[in-house]
Amino acid sequence: MDILWTGVFALLLIGYFALEGSGIGVGMLLPALGGTQPDRDRVVAAMAPFVLANEVWLVAVAGVLFGVFPSIEGEVLSGLYPLVVTLLVSWILRDAGLWFRRRLDGHAWRAGWDWMICLGSYGLALSWGMALVAMAGGLSGSPIGLPGLGGGLVVAAAFAFHGWTFLSWRLPGQVTGASRAGGALLASAGVAALPVAVLLAALAPWLLEHIAPSGTLNVLSVMILPFAPLMLGAQVWVWRTFGPRRAADRVPSFF
């Protein structure tokens, strides 16, 4: 049971980086790839149907952290306090940009929220990189520093690469000028998830030491595992429904 739930936690966190890394990367590249408003609209529309299904992996990570590793949750979140604040504020601004950008007409409104999407995406990538470095250092000392910044840049570069590959897969030969197949997207997802996967491998013994008692884990297993097929099925459904072959639609995007 201990191994299973540590695995679930790792899967969710790796899944978040592999999936949402592309959305964050696309957000970072938004001004670079979208010189004009219609270009930016196409870039955002390409990622839009995946955003909700992707970002929810991190919500699940936080939930499992609380339920399965309660003694770690407080330590990590208060140890990384300033980074958790920048991460959440960036996330909020990014999401607000997506939800709000088309709700009013007017050029300035949409362009302004597009900048918010870009800013929030950079904030997310940098905060993540710094948080990973601080975790690797055992949460000793200030979570903000030069090594952290280096980590932030690495994660940002990995996300940008993943976002670029995603766009070349979803809109082949269009905004990026390149075409990528599903295999390349899988590979870039691996690149985006690599830093966190390495960290999780190193931290696994520590995680196992702090896992909740078996009474709690049994309850979680009974209540959650029956839903696992539905959760995975819904995710697969999203990727099948909105993949590149179905992308040629005439419907204006909601985001």
Binding site: M223, I224, M231
Partner: peptide, 14 residues
Amino acid sequence: GDVFGAPLAIETLG
């Protein structure tokens, strides 16, 4: 956390 965390975890995942 061993008690309070369970419903929160079930809520996020399930």
